[in-house]
């Protein structure tokens, strides 16, 4: 659920008592019409709060925690599990790691974490939300989230497929899985890894800690999923072309 406008106004008054709406929009890069509409509707998106917090030099996570819905975020953050960290490594970075570990004959360095390997791209990546949920799923997670939040499983799955998850659901998912709350917020792109308090090399370290076998099968799963989604996209493209060819 987005933030209630009333609480948001109080927060604004506390953190930026003298700033006008125009000032806030200018420094945070939010469109004025969007901002005004959110206030009128009484529901302010979490992304709005995050943008303004960033612009004011405040911690988005701490400011989010000052709202009743997100009061759990105020507790000292539980660090992400290695599986969560690896889930936030982009598929192409995973494949690059596979090649890096291969023998020099195949363009690798025969070791891991070589200084020659380019740095990992920052989260979120193209399938970061689904990969995060898969990383913390014990098989029953989706049912528990659905039961706890009242969101239908197919709507939840649709959000994952679209690589989206509302901040509220991300927090509920983390709670249901018993992991730290920051993982979902990073995977959905609401806050950055640094804002979540993840140590700079954490992702790389988790990746390096994977055995060759684990890394290969993980990369294989990711490639398979990518192939599936690309094939579906190609099929839809072909179908659309056919419709246009016949009816356009």
């Amino acid at each position: 659920m987005p933030l209630p406008a009333k609480a948001f106004q109080l927060w604004l008054h506390r953190v930026a008592p003298s700033a006008s709406t125009a000032d806030l929009c200018r420094i945070s890069g939010i469109k004025r019409t969007t901002f005004a509409q959110q206030l009128v509707r009484g529901k302010v998106a979490e992304t709005t709060l995050v943008s303004i917090s960033r612009a004011l030099g405040l911690s988005p996570l701490a400011e989010l925690a000052s709202f009743d819905h997100y009061v759990e975020l105020a507790a000292p953050p539980q660090p992400p599990t290695p599986a969560e960290l690896v889930s936030q490594v982009a598929t192409m970075d995973l494949l690059r790691a596979v090649i890096s570990r291969s023998s020099p004959a195949y363009g690798g360095y025969g070791d891991q974490g070589s200084s020659m390997t380019p740095a990992l791209s920052p989260a979120p990546h193209a399938t970061s939300v689904r990969n995060w949920v898969d990383a913390i799923d014990d098989g029953e997670l989706r049912h528990r989230v659905s039961a706890a939040t009242g969101v239908a499983p197919q709507n939840y799955s649709a959000q994952l497929t679209a690589n989206r998850l509302s901040p509220e659901l991300a927090v509920a998912t983390a709670r249901a899985a018993g992991v730290g709350f920051t993982g979902g917020l990073v995977a959905t792109g609401l806050i950055t890894e640094a804002e979540a308090g993840w140590t700079p090399g954490a992702k790389q370290a988790a990746l390096d800690a994977l055995s060759d076998g684990e890394l290969s099968s993980l990369a294989g799963e990711r490639l398979q999923a990518l192939g599936k989604s690309l094939r579906r996209h190609e099929q839809e493209q072909a179908q659309t072309e056919k419709i246009w060819e016949n009816l356009g």
């Binding site: 192409m92 193209a126 990518l226 989604s229 690309l230 996209h233 659309t240 246009w244 009816l247 356009g248």
Partner: peptide, 23 residues
């Protein structure tokens, strides 16, 4: 309904193709 298809085709031709690639 038929004109919408035609419209979609014309729009897609004009706009650059958005490909869900291997990003």
């Amino acid at each position: 309904g038929l004109s919408l298809i035609w419209l979609a085709k014309s729009l897609a031709k004009r706009a650059p193709k958005k490909q869900a690639g291997m990003a």
